[in-house]
Nucleic acid binder design. Structure first.
Lengths: 222, 222
DNA sequence: TTACGTTTAAAACAGCTGTTTACCAGCTCG
DNA sequence: CGAGCTGGTAAACAGCTGTTTTAAACGTAA
Protein backbone atom coordinates (compact mmCIF):
# COMPACT_ATOMS: atom_id res chain seq x y z
CA UNK A 1 0.00 0.00 0.00
CA UNK A 2 1.56 3.19 -1.18
CA UNK A 3 1.69 5.87 1.48
CA UNK A 4 -0.22 8.99 0.59
CA UNK A 5 1.53 12.13 -0.52
CA UNK A 6 3.84 13.80 1.96
CA UNK A 7 1.73 16.93 1.85
CA UNK A 8 -1.40 14.90 2.50
CA UNK A 9 0.19 12.99 5.35
CA UNK A 10 1.16 16.27 6.99
CA UNK A 11 -2.32 17.72 6.60
CA UNK A 12 -4.03 14.56 7.84
CA UNK A 13 -1.88 14.41 10.94
CA UNK A 14 -1.92 18.14 11.60
CA UNK A 15 -5.69 18.47 11.56
CA UNK A 16 -6.11 15.68 14.08
CA UNK A 17 -3.49 17.04 16.46
CA UNK A 18 -4.73 20.61 16.11
CA UNK A 19 -8.25 19.49 16.88
CA UNK A 20 -7.10 17.52 19.90
CA UNK A 21 -4.76 20.01 21.50
CA UNK A 22 -5.04 23.37 19.79
CA UNK A 23 -2.56 25.19 17.59
CA UNK A 24 -0.04 26.53 20.04
CA UNK A 25 0.04 23.27 21.95
CA UNK A 26 0.90 21.27 18.83
CA UNK A 27 4.49 21.53 17.66
CA UNK A 28 5.75 20.85 14.19
CA UNK A 29 7.80 18.03 15.66
CA UNK A 30 4.65 16.45 17.05
CA UNK A 31 3.14 16.54 13.61
CA UNK A 32 6.11 15.43 11.56
CA UNK A 33 7.11 12.59 13.85
CA UNK A 34 3.59 11.19 13.94
CA UNK A 35 3.21 11.65 10.21
CA UNK A 36 6.61 9.99 9.67
CA UNK A 37 7.81 12.93 7.69
CA UNK A 38 10.88 15.04 8.02
CA UNK A 39 10.63 18.15 10.10
CA UNK A 40 11.78 20.46 7.35
CA UNK A 41 9.08 19.18 5.03
CA UNK A 42 6.51 21.41 6.66
CA UNK A 43 8.44 24.58 6.01
CA UNK A 44 9.37 23.34 2.57
CA UNK A 45 5.81 22.59 1.47
CA UNK A 46 3.84 25.17 3.41
CA UNK A 47 6.36 27.87 4.25
CA UNK A 48 5.44 28.31 7.89
CA UNK A 49 3.31 26.95 10.68
CA UNK A 50 0.74 29.69 10.15
CA UNK A 51 0.41 28.71 6.53
CA UNK A 52 0.00 25.09 7.52
CA UNK A 53 -2.84 26.01 9.84
CA UNK A 54 -4.54 27.95 7.07
CA UNK A 55 -4.03 25.05 4.68
CA UNK A 56 -5.72 22.72 7.13
CA UNK A 57 -8.74 25.01 7.17
CA UNK A 58 -8.73 25.52 3.43
CA UNK A 59 -8.96 21.80 2.83
CA UNK A 60 -12.34 21.84 4.58
CA UNK A 61 -13.61 25.27 3.73
CA UNK A 62 -12.84 25.30 0.02
CA UNK A 63 -15.06 22.30 -0.77
CA UNK A 64 -17.63 23.58 1.70
CA UNK A 65 -18.02 26.97 0.09
CA UNK A 66 -18.13 25.43 -3.34
CA UNK A 67 -20.90 22.99 -2.43
CA UNK A 68 -22.78 25.53 -0.38
CA UNK A 69 -22.80 27.97 -3.28
CA UNK A 70 -24.03 25.18 -5.53
CA UNK A 71 -26.74 24.19 -3.05
CA UNK A 72 -27.91 27.79 -2.77
CA UNK A 73 -27.93 28.07 -6.56
CA UNK A 74 -30.15 25.01 -6.71
CA UNK A 75 -32.47 26.41 -4.05
CA UNK A 76 -32.81 29.76 -5.79
CA UNK A 77 -33.59 27.98 -9.03
CA UNK A 78 -36.14 25.76 -7.34
CA UNK A 79 -37.91 28.63 -5.63
CA UNK A 80 -37.64 30.87 -8.70
CA UNK A 81 -37.85 34.21 -7.00
CA UNK A 82 -40.16 33.11 -4.21
CA UNK A 83 -38.82 33.38 -0.68
CA UNK A 84 -36.94 30.33 0.54
CA UNK A 85 -38.27 29.31 3.97
CA UNK A 86 -35.91 29.60 6.90
CA UNK A 87 -36.15 25.92 7.74
CA UNK A 88 -35.03 25.02 4.24
CA UNK A 89 -32.05 27.36 4.45
CA UNK A 90 -30.94 25.96 7.79
CA UNK A 91 -31.46 22.41 6.61
CA UNK A 92 -29.38 23.08 3.52
CA UNK A 93 -26.55 24.47 5.53
CA UNK A 94 -26.62 21.53 7.92
CA UNK A 95 -26.61 19.10 5.03
CA UNK A 96 -23.64 20.77 3.42
CA UNK A 97 -21.67 20.90 6.65
CA UNK A 98 -22.34 17.22 7.22
CA UNK A 99 -21.55 16.35 3.67
CA UNK A 100 -18.12 17.87 3.27
CA UNK A 101 -15.99 15.99 5.79
CA UNK A 102 -17.93 12.76 5.40
CA UNK A 103 -15.36 11.53 2.96
CA UNK A 104 -12.69 11.57 5.60
CA UNK A 105 -15.12 10.70 8.36
CA UNK A 106 -13.96 13.70 10.29
CA UNK A 107 -16.88 15.97 11.00
CA UNK A 108 -15.77 16.05 14.59
CA UNK A 109 -12.38 17.39 13.57
CA UNK A 110 -13.97 19.99 11.35
CA UNK A 111 -16.21 21.30 14.10
CA UNK A 112 -13.41 21.34 16.63
CA UNK A 113 -11.35 23.39 14.22
CA UNK A 114 -14.19 25.86 13.73
CA UNK A 115 -14.53 26.17 17.47
CA UNK A 116 -10.83 26.78 17.86
CA UNK A 117 -10.84 29.34 15.09
CA UNK A 118 -13.57 31.21 16.89
CA UNK A 119 -12.02 31.05 20.31
CA UNK A 120 -8.76 32.44 18.96
CA UNK A 121 -9.77 36.01 19.66
CA UNK A 122 -7.16 37.78 17.62
CA UNK A 123 -4.66 36.77 15.03
CA UNK A 124 -4.19 35.64 11.52
CA UNK A 125 -6.76 32.87 11.41
CA UNK A 126 -9.86 34.93 11.95
CA UNK A 127 -8.70 37.39 9.33
CA UNK A 128 -7.91 34.60 6.90
CA UNK A 129 -11.33 32.99 7.26
CA UNK A 130 -13.11 36.32 7.09
CA UNK A 131 -11.24 37.30 3.93
CA UNK A 132 -11.54 34.01 2.11
CA UNK A 133 -14.95 32.76 3.14
CA UNK A 134 -16.91 35.81 4.23
CA UNK A 135 -18.78 36.05 0.95
CA UNK A 136 -20.60 32.73 1.36
CA UNK A 137 -21.75 33.78 4.75
CA UNK A 138 -22.98 37.09 3.35
CA UNK A 139 -24.96 35.33 0.68
CA UNK A 140 -26.52 33.05 3.27
CA UNK A 141 -27.47 35.91 5.58
CA UNK A 142 -29.06 37.72 2.65
CA UNK A 143 -31.32 34.76 2.07
CA UNK A 144 -32.08 34.53 5.76
CA UNK A 145 -33.04 38.19 5.65
CA UNK A 146 -35.60 37.52 2.95
CA UNK A 147 -36.92 34.55 4.92
CA UNK A 148 -37.38 36.58 8.10
CA UNK A 149 -38.65 39.99 6.99
CA UNK A 150 -40.29 40.64 10.34
CA UNK A 151 -36.95 40.59 12.19
CA UNK A 152 -35.11 43.89 12.67
CA UNK A 153 -31.70 43.90 11.00
CA UNK A 154 -29.66 43.89 14.18
CA UNK A 155 -31.85 41.31 15.85
CA UNK A 156 -31.36 38.90 12.98
CA UNK A 157 -27.62 39.46 13.09
CA UNK A 158 -27.43 38.59 16.74
CA UNK A 159 -29.75 35.62 16.51
CA UNK A 160 -27.73 34.11 13.71
CA UNK A 161 -24.68 34.32 15.91
CA UNK A 162 -26.60 32.91 18.84
CA UNK A 163 -27.47 29.77 16.92
CA UNK A 164 -24.00 29.65 15.41
CA UNK A 165 -22.72 29.61 18.96
CA UNK A 166 -25.01 26.77 19.89
CA UNK A 167 -23.96 24.63 16.97
CA UNK A 168 -20.22 25.23 17.05
CA UNK A 169 -20.04 25.08 20.81
CA UNK A 170 -21.96 21.84 21.02
CA UNK A 171 -20.35 20.03 18.14
CA UNK A 172 -16.84 21.21 18.94
CA UNK A 173 -17.11 20.01 22.50
CA UNK A 174 -19.00 16.94 21.46
CA UNK A 175 -16.66 14.32 22.84
CA UNK A 176 -16.61 15.69 26.35
CA UNK A 177 -20.37 16.27 26.42
CA UNK A 178 -21.07 12.87 24.96
CA UNK A 179 -19.09 11.21 27.73
CA UNK A 180 -21.20 12.95 30.35
CA UNK A 181 -24.46 12.22 28.58
CA UNK A 182 -23.55 8.59 28.15
CA UNK A 183 -22.59 8.21 31.77
CA UNK A 184 -25.63 10.01 33.18
CA UNK A 185 -28.33 8.93 30.77
CA UNK A 186 -26.87 5.78 29.29
CA UNK A 187 -27.67 7.09 25.89
CA UNK A 188 -25.21 7.11 23.05
CA UNK A 189 -25.66 10.07 20.73
CA UNK A 190 -24.34 10.31 17.23
CA UNK A 191 -23.65 13.55 15.46
CA UNK A 192 -26.76 12.93 13.44
CA UNK A 193 -28.76 12.48 16.63
CA UNK A 194 -27.50 15.76 17.87
CA UNK A 195 -28.44 17.59 14.72
CA UNK A 196 -31.93 16.13 14.98
CA UNK A 197 -32.12 17.57 18.47
CA UNK A 198 -30.66 20.87 17.37
CA UNK A 199 -33.16 21.55 14.60
CA UNK A 200 -36.28 22.46 16.61
CA UNK A 201 -34.17 24.42 19.07
CA UNK A 202 -32.54 26.48 16.36
CA UNK A 203 -35.82 27.16 14.60
CA UNK A 204 -37.46 28.17 17.85
CA UNK A 205 -34.56 30.47 18.66
CA UNK A 206 -34.81 32.26 15.33
CA UNK A 207 -38.60 32.61 15.68
CA UNK A 208 -38.55 33.72 19.30
CA UNK A 209 -40.59 36.81 20.18
CA UNK A 210 -38.75 40.11 20.06
CA UNK A 211 -37.16 41.26 23.31
CA UNK A 212 -38.75 43.96 25.41
CA UNK A 213 -37.51 47.36 24.33
CA UNK A 214 -34.51 48.38 26.37
CA UNK A 215 -35.48 49.74 29.73
CA UNK A 216 -32.27 50.86 31.35
CA UNK A 217 -30.36 51.90 28.27
CA UNK A 218 -30.95 53.83 25.10
CA UNK A 219 -33.62 52.26 22.87
CA UNK A 220 -32.29 50.42 19.84
CA UNK A 221 -32.80 51.89 16.40
CA UNK A 222 -36.36 50.91 15.49
CA UNK B 1 -1.78 54.92 47.14
CA UNK B 2 0.33 51.81 47.51
CA UNK B 3 0.57 49.30 44.70
CA UNK B 4 -1.63 46.30 45.19
CA UNK B 5 -0.28 43.03 46.48
CA UNK B 6 2.16 41.12 44.30
CA UNK B 7 -0.23 38.19 44.14
CA UNK B 8 -3.06 40.50 43.11
CA UNK B 9 -0.94 42.23 40.49
CA UNK B 10 -0.08 38.87 38.99
CA UNK B 11 -3.68 37.73 38.93
CA UNK B 12 -4.94 41.01 37.49
CA UNK B 13 -2.42 40.95 34.70
CA UNK B 14 -2.70 37.23 34.03
CA UNK B 15 -6.45 37.21 33.60
CA UNK B 16 -6.32 39.99 31.05
CA UNK B 17 -3.54 38.41 29.01
CA UNK B 18 -5.10 34.95 29.20
CA UNK B 19 -8.39 36.36 27.99
CA UNK B 20 -6.70 38.19 25.14
CA UNK B 21 -4.40 35.50 23.85
CA UNK B 22 -5.14 32.19 25.52
CA UNK B 23 -3.14 30.19 28.01
CA UNK B 24 -0.45 28.62 25.90
CA UNK B 25 0.15 31.84 24.01
CA UNK B 26 0.77 33.79 27.21
CA UNK B 27 4.16 33.21 28.83
CA UNK B 28 5.02 33.82 32.42
CA UNK B 29 7.48 36.42 31.23
CA UNK B 30 4.67 38.27 29.44
CA UNK B 31 2.74 38.35 32.67
CA UNK B 32 5.51 39.22 35.08
CA UNK B 33 7.03 41.94 32.93
CA UNK B 34 3.67 43.64 32.39
CA UNK B 35 2.79 43.27 36.06
CA UNK B 36 6.23 44.61 37.00
CA UNK B 37 6.92 41.60 39.12
CA UNK B 38 9.84 39.23 39.22
CA UNK B 39 9.56 36.13 37.07
CA UNK B 40 10.12 33.75 39.97
CA UNK B 41 7.26 35.31 41.92
CA UNK B 42 4.73 33.27 39.98
CA UNK B 43 6.29 29.97 40.91
CA UNK B 44 6.86 31.21 44.42
CA UNK B 45 3.26 32.23 45.07
CA UNK B 46 1.35 29.81 42.89
CA UNK B 47 3.72 26.90 42.35
CA UNK B 48 3.26 26.51 38.63
CA UNK B 49 1.63 28.02 35.59
CA UNK B 50 -1.20 25.50 35.78
CA UNK B 51 -1.90 26.54 39.35
CA UNK B 52 -1.88 30.19 38.31
CA UNK B 53 -4.49 29.47 35.64
CA UNK B 54 -6.67 27.70 38.19
CA UNK B 55 -6.22 30.57 40.63
CA UNK B 56 -7.41 33.02 37.98
CA UNK B 57 -10.57 30.97 37.57
CA UNK B 58 -11.07 30.48 41.27
CA UNK B 59 -11.08 34.23 41.84
CA UNK B 60 -14.21 34.44 39.68
CA UNK B 61 -15.84 31.12 40.37
CA UNK B 62 -15.57 31.07 44.13
CA UNK B 63 -17.63 34.23 44.64
CA UNK B 64 -19.95 33.13 41.85
CA UNK B 65 -20.79 29.78 43.39
CA UNK B 66 -21.24 31.36 46.78
CA UNK B 67 -23.67 33.98 45.51
CA UNK B 68 -25.44 31.57 43.25
CA UNK B 69 -26.04 29.16 46.10
CA UNK B 70 -27.35 32.05 48.17
CA UNK B 71 -29.62 33.21 45.37
CA UNK B 72 -31.00 29.70 44.93
CA UNK B 73 -31.54 29.45 48.67
CA UNK B 74 -33.56 32.65 48.54
CA UNK B 75 -35.58 31.38 45.60
CA UNK B 76 -36.38 28.09 47.27
CA UNK B 77 -37.47 29.94 50.38
CA UNK B 78 -39.62 32.31 48.37
CA UNK B 79 -41.34 29.57 46.42
CA UNK B 80 -41.62 27.33 49.50
CA UNK B 81 -41.83 24.00 47.76
CA UNK B 82 -43.68 25.23 44.70
CA UNK B 83 -41.92 24.84 41.39
CA UNK B 84 -39.69 27.75 40.43
CA UNK B 85 -40.48 28.83 36.86
CA UNK B 86 -37.78 28.34 34.27
CA UNK B 87 -37.64 32.04 33.44
CA UNK B 88 -36.95 32.89 37.04
CA UNK B 89 -34.14 30.36 37.22
CA UNK B 90 -32.50 31.65 34.07
CA UNK B 91 -32.92 35.23 35.19
CA UNK B 92 -31.32 34.46 38.51
CA UNK B 93 -28.35 32.83 36.88
CA UNK B 94 -27.89 35.76 34.51
CA UNK B 95 -28.09 38.25 37.36
CA UNK B 96 -25.49 36.36 39.36
CA UNK B 97 -23.13 36.07 36.41
CA UNK B 98 -23.47 39.79 35.78
CA UNK B 99 -23.06 40.62 39.42
CA UNK B 100 -19.83 38.85 40.24
CA UNK B 101 -17.26 40.55 38.04
CA UNK B 102 -19.01 43.91 38.18
CA UNK B 103 -16.67 44.98 40.94
CA UNK B 104 -13.69 44.75 38.67
CA UNK B 105 -15.74 45.71 35.63
CA UNK B 106 -14.49 42.66 33.83
CA UNK B 107 -17.45 40.59 32.74
CA UNK B 108 -15.86 40.41 29.34
CA UNK B 109 -12.74 38.80 30.77
CA UNK B 110 -14.80 36.37 32.77
CA UNK B 111 -16.76 35.21 29.74
CA UNK B 112 -13.67 34.93 27.60
CA UNK B 113 -12.11 32.75 30.26
CA UNK B 114 -15.16 30.51 30.37
CA UNK B 115 -15.05 30.20 26.61
CA UNK B 116 -11.39 29.29 26.70
CA UNK B 117 -11.97 26.76 29.44
CA UNK B 118 -14.56 25.10 27.29
CA UNK B 119 -12.56 25.10 24.10
CA UNK B 120 -9.64 23.45 25.88
CA UNK B 121 -10.78 19.96 25.01
CA UNK B 122 -8.55 18.04 27.35
CA UNK B 123 -6.40 18.87 30.29
CA UNK B 124 -6.33 19.98 33.82
CA UNK B 125 -8.67 22.96 33.62
CA UNK B 126 -11.83 21.12 32.69
CA UNK B 127 -11.19 18.61 35.45
CA UNK B 128 -10.51 21.36 37.94
CA UNK B 129 -13.72 23.21 37.15
CA UNK B 130 -15.75 20.03 37.10
CA UNK B 131 -14.37 18.94 40.47
CA UNK B 132 -14.66 22.28 42.23
CA UNK B 133 -17.79 23.77 40.77
CA UNK B 134 -19.80 20.84 39.42
CA UNK B 135 -22.09 20.78 42.44
CA UNK B 136 -23.60 24.23 41.80
CA UNK B 137 -24.36 23.22 38.28
CA UNK B 138 -25.97 20.02 39.50
CA UNK B 139 -28.19 21.93 41.89
CA UNK B 140 -29.20 24.30 39.11
CA UNK B 141 -30.03 21.50 36.68
CA UNK B 142 -32.11 19.81 39.37
CA UNK B 143 -34.24 22.93 39.66
CA UNK B 144 -34.46 23.18 35.90
CA UNK B 145 -35.67 19.60 35.88
CA UNK B 146 -38.53 20.47 38.19
CA UNK B 147 -39.37 23.49 36.07
CA UNK B 148 -39.52 21.48 32.86
CA UNK B 149 -41.12 18.16 33.79
CA UNK B 150 -42.33 17.57 30.27
CA UNK B 151 -38.78 17.38 28.86
CA UNK B 152 -37.11 13.98 28.65
CA UNK B 153 -33.96 13.78 30.74
CA UNK B 154 -31.53 13.61 27.86
CA UNK B 155 -33.31 16.33 25.94
CA UNK B 156 -33.03 18.73 28.84
CA UNK B 157 -29.37 17.95 29.24
CA UNK B 158 -28.63 18.78 25.67
CA UNK B 159 -30.78 21.89 25.57
CA UNK B 160 -29.05 23.29 28.62
CA UNK B 161 -25.76 22.85 26.84
CA UNK B 162 -27.19 24.37 23.69
CA UNK B 163 -28.10 27.57 25.48
CA UNK B 164 -24.87 27.46 27.45
CA UNK B 165 -23.13 27.42 24.10
CA UNK B 166 -25.09 30.39 22.88
CA UNK B 167 -24.31 32.47 25.91
CA UNK B 168 -20.64 31.64 26.32
CA UNK B 169 -19.96 31.78 22.61
CA UNK B 170 -21.62 35.13 22.18
CA UNK B 171 -20.29 36.83 25.25
CA UNK B 172 -16.78 35.42 24.90
CA UNK B 173 -16.53 36.62 21.33
CA UNK B 174 -18.33 39.82 22.17
CA UNK B 175 -15.66 42.26 21.12
CA UNK B 176 -15.26 40.89 17.62
CA UNK B 177 -19.01 40.57 17.07
CA UNK B 178 -19.67 44.01 18.47
CA UNK B 179 -17.25 45.52 15.98
CA UNK B 180 -19.11 43.92 13.08
CA UNK B 181 -22.52 44.88 14.42
CA UNK B 182 -21.47 48.43 15.01
CA UNK B 183 -20.00 48.76 11.54
CA UNK B 184 -22.93 47.14 9.74
CA UNK B 185 -25.85 48.38 11.78
CA UNK B 186 -24.42 51.45 13.47
CA UNK B 187 -25.68 50.19 16.73
CA UNK B 188 -23.63 50.00 19.86
CA UNK B 189 -24.58 47.09 22.09
CA UNK B 190 -23.77 46.79 25.74
CA UNK B 191 -23.51 43.50 27.56
CA UNK B 192 -26.80 44.30 29.20
CA UNK B 193 -28.34 44.90 25.78
CA UNK B 194 -27.13 41.56 24.65
CA UNK B 195 -28.60 39.78 27.63
CA UNK B 196 -31.92 41.46 26.91
CA UNK B 197 -31.74 40.03 23.41
CA UNK B 198 -30.64 36.65 24.67
CA UNK B 199 -33.53 36.14 27.07
CA UNK B 200 -36.40 35.42 24.66
CA UNK B 201 -34.11 33.32 22.48
CA UNK B 202 -32.98 31.16 25.37
CA UNK B 203 -36.51 30.70 26.68
CA UNK B 204 -37.76 29.79 23.23
CA UNK B 205 -34.93 27.32 22.81
CA UNK B 206 -35.73 25.56 26.07
CA UNK B 207 -39.45 25.44 25.22
CA UNK B 208 -38.99 24.32 21.62
CA UNK B 209 -41.09 21.36 20.47
CA UNK B 210 -39.50 17.95 20.84
CA UNK B 211 -37.56 16.68 17.83
CA UNK B 212 -39.04 14.07 15.53
CA UNK B 213 -38.13 10.65 16.89
CA UNK B 214 -35.03 9.56 14.99
CA UNK B 215 -36.35 10.70 11.66
CA UNK B 216 -34.03 10.58 8.70
CA UNK B 217 -34.61 13.73 6.73
CA UNK B 218 -30.87 14.06 6.61
CA UNK B 219 -28.80 12.12 4.14
CA UNK B 220 -27.24 8.99 5.50
CA UNK B 221 -23.50 9.24 5.21
CA UNK B 222 -20.64 8.56 7.63
C1' DT C 1 25.64 8.80 -19.45
C1' DT C 2 25.34 13.65 -17.57
C1' DA C 3 22.66 17.32 -15.82
C1' DC C 4 18.86 19.26 -13.47
C1' DG C 5 15.17 20.45 -10.49
C1' DT C 6 12.54 18.32 -6.83
C1' DT C 7 12.07 16.04 -2.52
C1' DT C 8 13.95 14.09 1.77
C1' DA C 9 17.36 13.80 5.49
C1' DA C 10 19.97 15.36 9.53
C1' DA C 11 22.03 18.87 11.92
C1' DA C 12 22.47 23.35 13.54
C1' DC C 13 20.42 27.86 14.62
C1' DA C 14 18.89 31.52 17.82
C1' DG C 15 15.32 32.28 20.78
C1' DC C 16 11.88 31.39 24.07
C1' DT C 17 9.65 28.18 27.53
C1' DG C 18 8.60 26.89 32.71
C1' DT C 19 11.13 25.97 36.61
C1' DT C 20 14.89 25.97 40.05
C1' DT C 21 18.72 27.71 42.35
C1' DA C 22 21.33 30.66 45.34
C1' DC C 23 21.34 34.89 47.49
C1' DC C 24 19.71 39.03 49.80
C1' DA C 25 16.68 42.37 52.32
C1' DG C 26 13.66 43.10 56.04
C1' DC C 27 11.07 41.40 59.63
C1' DT C 28 9.81 39.05 64.21
C1' DC C 29 10.86 36.47 68.13
C1' DG C 30 13.76 34.09 71.59
C1' DC D 1 22.50 39.94 69.53
C1' DG D 2 21.54 36.17 66.12
C1' DA D 3 18.23 32.61 64.42
C1' DG D 4 14.47 31.92 61.56
C1' DC D 5 11.17 33.20 58.59
C1' DT D 6 8.87 35.57 54.50
C1' DG D 7 9.01 38.11 50.15
C1' DG D 8 11.58 39.35 46.49
C1' DT D 9 15.62 39.21 43.09
C1' DA D 10 18.96 37.87 39.38
C1' DA D 11 21.00 34.17 37.17
C1' DA D 12 21.17 29.79 35.46
C1' DC D 13 18.94 25.42 34.06
C1' DA D 14 17.51 21.92 30.63
C1' DG D 15 14.35 21.49 27.17
C1' DC D 16 11.50 22.69 23.45
C1' DT D 17 10.11 26.10 19.76
C1' DG D 18 9.94 27.44 14.49
C1' DT D 19 13.07 28.00 11.01
C1' DT D 20 17.32 27.54 8.14
C1' DT D 21 21.21 25.32 6.37
C1' DT D 22 23.80 21.64 4.31
C1' DA D 23 23.99 17.40 2.13
C1' DA D 24 22.36 13.50 -0.05
C1' DA D 25 19.02 10.75 -2.83
C1' DC D 26 15.65 10.73 -6.28
C1' DG D 27 13.27 10.65 -10.99
C1' DT D 28 13.30 12.58 -15.45
C1' DA D 29 14.93 14.72 -19.75
C1' DA D 30 18.71 15.67 -22.87
Amino acid sequence: MAQPDTVTRILDTAEVLFAERGFAETSLRNITSKAKVNLAAVNYHFGSKKALIQAVFARYLDPFTERFHAALDALEAEYAGRVIPLEVLLETMAKTVLDVPAERNSLKVFMRLLGLAYSQAQGHLRRYIQDHYGSVFSRFTDLVRQATPELPEAERFWRLHFVLGTVIFTLSGLDALRDIAEKDYGEHVSVRDLIRRLRPVVVAAMNAPLPDPASDSLPAAV
